[in-house]
Design a protein around this nucleic acid. Structure first.
Lengths: 106, 106
DNA sequence: TATATTTGCAGTCAAATAGCTGCACTATGG
DNA sequence: CCATAGTGCAGCTATTTGACTGCAAATATA
């Protein structure tokens, strides 16, 4: 029944990206997260569940509260996807890369 | 009727990511792209249309053939999303950043 | 001009998704 | 022990999505 989630599908939803941005700043409880949105608490809870399945979020139980915090490692899969194209648009990256390949030269 | 497409939704589909990877190597016609997949030509054509709506692909009409090629600029939106988290996992990036902040000239 | 090739568009259908409400479970405090 | 607060899960519905088939438009070739 439950389709295998991948991280690209997880970040496809704008609400979930907003949740990620919120939690990135500080760990938050589901209630506090839901308070930031107009959707119902249960709906936000479902989004949190999806993000947790992809390990984008991690739980931190404290008494009856659960604090969710970001797991930045999972973003590597997205980074790996766009990395091959990065040099085609990111001048800053090109400068960094030049320094990396030629660290001692002018 | 037609929902506004965003780029995150565009790359959520694995077939579309595969199309992107194909076209990144070289510009291709819809027919040639479809030949790489088991889905029908029309289904692939629909995916190409979605990618083009998001400007991830660009058309290049040559007679009755249309060559699609990648528009890497659009990946910036994805990069901007994950960039804030990059330093938290990417050691290589940290090294590059260090070089950038402390260039070769003493 | 007639024909074949390349492509896009409309229509249909099954499956997945995101939203809601209601209920059950756990932990804290009196 | 009981009430309350914080969460998760089940079930329902409307919307969206991805796949297919069929057809039309445009271009190249005989």
């Amino acid at each position: 029944m439950e389709m295998r989630r991948d991280i690209f599908q997880a970040i496809a939803d704008p609400t979930r990206r907003a949740i990620i941005a919120l939690v990135a700043a500080q760990a938050m409880t589901p209630g506090a997260i839901a308070a930031e949105f107009s959707s119902s608490r249960q709906t936000i809870s479902r989004h949190i569940q999806i993000l947790t399945e992809c390990q984008l979020l991690r739980q931190d139980q404290k008494g009856r509260e659960i604090h969710y915090h970001l797991n930045p490692n999972q973003f590597k899969e997205i980074a790996d996807f766009i990395e091959p194209f990065r040099q085609l648009w990111d001048d800053r990256f090109n400068k960094l890369e030049a320094l990396m390949n030629n660290p001692t030269n002018p």
